[in-house]
């Protein structure tokens, strides 16, 4: 059996995720299957549709495999959101990747039952990239920040900022037109939208847990997966789960320092808020967590248990990693 699978995602072909995770992963799968399982990647929504449709495309077989953010369809995946709560996840991508993947094994089967999840993970710390210096909550007051996910928006609001929602490609234009004062993304995304050219200040939160991360899923159409010959399925299985999660951390853990160095070379300032300030932020964002717990209850979920397990897994995989 020789199979070619279509992998669909919304990032451009020059993006770090495409170059440093999806391509190497597809090549590894091809190599280990003696080129019998080929994965053809279609970046930039080439196969049609809009980013929020990607998950359905995997479910319905429009694409065989998709890469997307569960957060692109707010409200649809309530459990995995726990890692996007303020001050839950780790600074380093590798920790979040392994923690979320393990969490997915036990807690997210129901949530992703419509597809075959190949890997579920999250990126490393996100920073506040802004035209103004942000050293304290007072500096955040009224700052118009493009936020990446629903819960991060709530966290920024709790900190006094004015979160603005818009698709990532709109960010450069909106920044130059003063529609926003900055954006909250990890370093890895910065060069793709030339953020380093448009803002001068990058605010980092010291240590773990960190203010915010976003989660990702690499999902495959169920029928397609079950229809694979056993030996091909074995190759795919060997490159799923924790094995894939380790590869998935690369775009962030290896690219983040490169991008940060580039921003510093331009003369941009990287600000690390003090531990005392971080404690204030954690205190101020507690209502976001409580609100999420209440919403979970309404949906019939045990949010407290999910949160406890998420924190435990981050601690377990983060042991010994700074």
């Amino acid at each position: 059996q020789e199979v070619t699978l279509r992998l669909h995602h919304f990032l451009p072909a020059v993006s770090n995720v495409h170059r440093f995770f999806l391509q190497p992963w597809a090549q590894k799968v091809a190599k280990e299957s003696d080129n019998r399982l080929r994965i053809q990647i279609f970046p930039a929504m080439q196969l049609g549709g809009a980013p929020p449709q990607l998950f359905d495309q995997a479910r319905d077989g429009v694409a065989d495999i998709i890469w997307t953010l569960p957060g692109n369809t707010p409200g649809r995946f309530p459990r995995i959101e726990v890692f996007e709560l303020p001050f839950v996840s780790h600074k380093r991508a590798i920790v979040n990747c392994l923690a979320i993947q393990e969490f997915a094994q036990s807690q997210l089967r129901e949530e992703f039952r419509e597809v075959h999840p190949l890997c579920v993970w999250g990126h490393g710390e996100g920073l506040i990239h802004a035209k103004r210096e942000v050293r304290s909550m007072e500096d955040l007051r009224g700052l118009k920040l493009r936020f990446p996910s629903r819960l991060n928006g709530e966290a920024l609001r709790a900190l006094g900022a004015a979160p603005v929602g818009m698709p990532v490609p709109q960010v450069p234009e909106a920044l130059s037109q003063g529609v926003i004062d900055g954006a909250v993304v990890p370093w890895e995304v910065v060069p793709s939208i030339r953020l380093q050219e448009m803002v001068k200040y990058h605010t980092e939160i010291p240590g773990s847990p960190t203010l915010y991360i976003a989660t990702f899923i690499l999902a495959m159409n169920r029928t397609k997966y079950e229809g694979l010959a056993p030996e091909l399925r074995a190759v795919l299985d060997a490159n799923s789960g924790a094995a894939a999660a380790r590869m998935a951390a690369v775009p962030w853990d290896e690219r983040n320092p490169v991008v940060e160095a580039e921003a510093r070379r331009r003369g941009n300032q990287v600000i690390v808020i003090t531990e005392a300030e971080k404690a204030r932020w954690m205190e101020a964002t507690k209502p976001v967590v409580e609100n999420w717990l209440a919403q979970s209850r309404e949906r019939g979920l045990d949010g407290a248990a999910l949160l406890e397990q998420a924190r435990a897994l981050v601690a377990k995989h983060g042991a010994g990693i700074g």
Binding site: G48, G49, A50, P52, Q53, D56, Q57, D60, G61, V62
Partner: peptide, 10 residues
């Protein structure tokens, strides 16, 4: 399947 929500998102 592809056409289900495509016109709306477009």
């Amino acid at each position: 399947n592809y056409l289900k929500t495509t016109p709306w998102h477009l």
